[in-house]
């Protein structure tokens, strides 16, 4: 049995090999400064934040709002209604999506997101940059440890209509086998593990 920290190390190694960036946040202040520095790589960033309760409890929206930055607040019923009515221009122009992860699988470098707890699927999909916040206790050794959890009743509502397994940024090698990141999904994947 691997310890928590060994699992984290394994996950980080796999993610790095998959051309993703990994960070550790030991406090809320560290998390905020990491997020701010990532967001600052864009001159006029447009950001979308996921709705899950533990992300909400960080009050990230307050801290991320600055001059030149635009933040899509989620959820708000009006926003969802607009999205649902196929008014996707707003979602299309978001450059940075900040989501949580429900689980991560250390041996394959995989993030697992439930559309139920994420409130949808798009934040990890349409932006150029996907930043994923991962509480350390959510790291599992492998797929075999996840499947029994999916079957548990208490996870039922959280699962939603799509369980998405994300193993690295979007990629293709359809042109002469040249690896290109960001074929259709995010070009960059940043994973911040929360150790506090």
């Amino acid at each position: 049995m691997k310890t928590r920290i060994e699992l984290l190390e394994q996950l980080e190694e796999e993610l790095t090999a998959l051309r993703s960036r990994v960070y550790r946040a030991y406090s809320k202040e560290e998390l905020l400064s990491l997020l701010n520095s990532l967001v600052d790589t864009f001159p006029t960033p447009k950001i979308a934040l996921e709705i899950r309760p533990w992300i909400k409890s960080f009050d990230l929206d307050e801290h991320l709002i600055k001059e030149n930055r635009q933040l899509l607040h989620l959820p708000s019923n009006e926003r969802r209604k607009a999205l649902r009515e196929n008014n996707w221009e707003a979602a299309c122009t978001v450059q940075i999506g900040i989501s949580g992860a429900d689980y991560a699988l250390a041996d394959t470098g995989t993030l697992v997101l439930f559309s139920g707890s994420s409130g949808g699927r798009w934040i990890s999909l349409t932006p150029n940059v996907h930043i994923c916040l991962l509480p350390m206790e959510r790291i599992l050794p492998s797929l075999d440890d996840l499947f029994p959890l999916l079957a548990q009743k208490e996870n039922g509502a959280a699962l939603g209509s799509a369980i998405t397994f994300i193993t690295g940024p979007s990629r293709t090698a359809d042109i002469e086998l040249t690896l290109v990141m960001g074929a259709h999904g995010p070009k960059e994947l940043h994973v911040i593990t929360l150790l506090y």
Binding site: T110, G116, G119, R121, R171, G185
Partner: peptide, 22 residues
Amino acid sequence: GQKFSTYMSFLQGPGRPAEDDG
């Protein structure tokens, strides 16, 4: 030769009312 492909989607029916999309 990948361990997993980049995206594996487990779809369980159409989008739900509490979700933005689907």
